[in-house]
């Protein structure tokens, strides 16, 4: 039975890979849109889409890593905002050179992620509760610190270039390259490093992982530190793009990142998820915004449409999973 590699089996297996469903969806929407709006398939439009999606992709990838490890990180939006705030403040108020300030910002994000991991592993507080609390705590620190007043006066040509406000030749931007580099590095690590199987094992069944000699604490800490690092990178780039750091910068991005990860095939129950899927998921959310802009649908519908897409994609995934018996378990 297993040795037979009939074409339909193969096809079923491919369709069941996380992220494939959403990729098909994305292609279909793109084809449909090319008939609705001649502008949709232009290079300029896609350069915009890519520039807009670069940040969300990074957060979605970080979220996916945490989800695979059986956790969830609700604090990424707040971490991004604080990291951006650190850079803006260091440059404008202290006069740090930009590269040093950027490092400090990213370091702040990484440390905050590590803090999440420490609270979860050392105090044994559930992932959801911990990051829900740190989401409010970190955002609260930013609010108290800035007294609600945006930080300004740190922008420069170089920083705008870094944030993707100014474009390189062909309409490309720096964040796109950074995102591409980090995502590809992540995919390679997940493909070739033992970290990947350790992470999946911890997420799917921590007890088995422990019996196999996997260091669960280290894996958990690393996944949250990575998520914090990526949030930090997003925060410092976003500060460059926006030119001011509002206390509510990147608010709600954790929900978008979570949505992207889930429609990209990550499971809230842990153990499953795909970085490619998460990237495609994030791209899809931005394309949906783009479609709404281009077709003249009132922007107030955007949230509603995104909600519908999540539900449709997950339902499709579940139904195809049941049909192909992927979730079928043989009870002992």
């Amino acid at each position: 039975m297993e040795t037979s590699t009939a074409f339909t089996d193969r096809l079923g297996a491919v369709l069941n890979r996380p992220g494939v469903g959403i990729a098909v969806f994305l292609v279909l929407v793109s084809i449909a849109m090319s008939f609705v709006s001649p502008f949709f398939l232009t290079w300029l439009n896609w350069a915009n889409i890519l520039n807009q999606s670069a940040f969300l992709i990074l957060l979605a990838v970080g979220m996916t890593v945490v989800l695979i490890g059986g956790g969830i990180d609700l604090s990424v939006g707040a971490i991004a905002a604080l990291s951006g705030g650190v850079v803006a403040w260091l440059v404008s108020a202290i006069g740090f050179p930009l590269p040093l300030a950027l490092l400090c910002g990213i370091l702040a994000g990484t440390l905050l992620g590590l803090l999440n991991g420490l609270i979860i592993t050392r105090l044994g507080i559930p992932d959801f509760v911990t990051t829900l609390a740190t989401l409010a705590l970190i955002r609260g620190i930013l609010l108290v610190w800035t007294q609600g007043v945006p930080i300004i006066g740190y922008s420069s040509n170089g920083y705008m270039m870094l944030g993707g406000l100014r474009r390189l030749p062909y309409g490309l931007t720096v964040p796109e390259f950074i995102t591409a580099f980090l995502v590809i590095a992540g995919i390679l690590i997940m493909r070739f490093s033992r970290v990947s199987s350790h992470l999946r094992a911890v997420g799917e069944n921590p007890e088995i992982a422990r019996l196999s000699g996997v260091n669960i604490t280290r894996i958990k800490l690393a996944s949250y530190a990575l998520s914090g690092f990526l949030a930090g990178v997003v925060g410092v780039l976003l500060a460059g793009r926006l030119g001011t750091v509002q206390p509510n910068m990147a608010a709600g991005m954790e929900i978008q990142a979570l949505a992207a990860a889930i429609i990209g095939g990550a499971a809230l129950s842990g153990g499953r998820g795909s970085l490619v899927g998460a990237a495609i998921g994030a791209l899809t959310l931005v394309v949906i915004q783009n479609v709404i802009n281009l077709t003249g649908i009132p922007p107030v519908f955007e949230t509603f449409v995104i909600g519908s897409v999540i539900l449709v994609v997950i339902t499709f995934d579940r139904v195809s999973g049941i049909v192909s018996g992927r979730r079928a378990q043989v009870a002992g």
Binding site: R194, S197, R200, A201, E204, N205, I208, A209, S212
Partner: peptide, 20 residues
């Protein structure tokens, strides 16, 4: 006695889990 495999990992990854 109980099954100690991670469903979502390949057989090879399961065999070497923790001892790659």
């Amino acid at each position: 006695q109980e099954r100690t495999l991670i469903a979502n990992l390949s057989a090879l990854d399961n065999i070497f889990l923790g001892r790659e």
